[in-house]
């Protein structure tokens, strides 16, 4: 336990980096995922703006990207980051990778939640003179809001998992702390504390997400 106290600055930095990476994944990746997921939904055959080419391209892209394990994406994207002038073993690269991976993961979650929206309501809005884009903005997304919040909450667990793995390229997340000071030095207490902090982060996220969704869904 003395070691944990000694490593306090490491834990604090780990926590901050983890939160920063998770926030990037959830918000930036989430926003991109929301856009891709919405595009997937509206371009469907009987969607709001049906488009076979858009639908096929997006589906192929998502299907290729999603199954790739995160660790591999982390490595495969290194040249891309470098091309943008970001070092392949920096927090910047971790952000790029997490945003990329979470965007594709969240895209499918978004699409699934949008499919569940009652098409009758969308039709009613169109009958009231709303443009397609307005239907998406003012009906589709608000109607799906509650389940989207639950979907994003679910994605949070996967994103925190990604921040841990980012530790292997030396990014100072809680995963790095556990890896470097815990596992490699056979200090199980350090590892356990890192895990505990991660569990707490996920729990808080889960609780907040559930509460918010309950408020939006009114049940």
């Amino acid at each position: 336990m003395d070691r944990v106290v000694e490593l306090r600055p490491e834990f604090v930095e780990g926590l901050i980096v983890t939160l920063r990476l998770a926030a990037a994944g959830l918000f930036v990746g989430g926003a991109i995922g929301l856009a891709i997921g919405t595009a997937l939904y509206v371009s469907r055959t009987r969607g709001i703006v049906p488009s076979r080419p858009v639908s096929v391209i997006l589906n192929v892209l998502v299907n290729i990207m999603r199954p790739i394990p995160f660790v591999l994406i982390l490595i495969v994207l290194q040249p891309v980051s470098r091309w943008f002038g970001i070092s392949g073993i920096s927090e910047g690269h971790a952000v790029v990778t997490i945003v990329f991976a979470s965007a594709f993961g969240i895209a499918r979650i978004v699409e699934q939640n949008l499919v569940a929206v009652d098409p009758g309501v969308l039709e009613a809005a169109r009958a009231m003179g709303a443009s397609r884009w307005r239907v998406v903005r003012t009906v589709l997304l608000p109607e799906a809001c509650g389940s989207l919040i639950l979907g994003f909450t679910y994605a949070l667990v996967a994103i925190v998992d990604m921040t841990t793995l980012a530790g292997i390229i030396g990014v100072h997340s809680l995963g790095y702390v556990a890896l470097t000071y815990g596992l490699r030095q056979f200090d199980w207490t350090v590892t356990a504390v890192a895990i505990l902090i991660i569990i707490v982060i996920v729990q808080i996220g889960q609780f907040a997400g559930n509460a918010w969704a309950r408020k939006v869904l009114r049940r």
């Binding site: 009758g120 309501v121 009613a124 809005a125 009958a127 009231m128 608000p142 109607e143």
Partner: peptide, 11 residues
């Protein structure tokens, strides 16, 4: 227009 399933916005 009105509908059989009412189609009210739940949100």
């Amino acid at each position: 227009m009105i509908f059989q399933q009412f189609n009210l916005l739940q949100s």
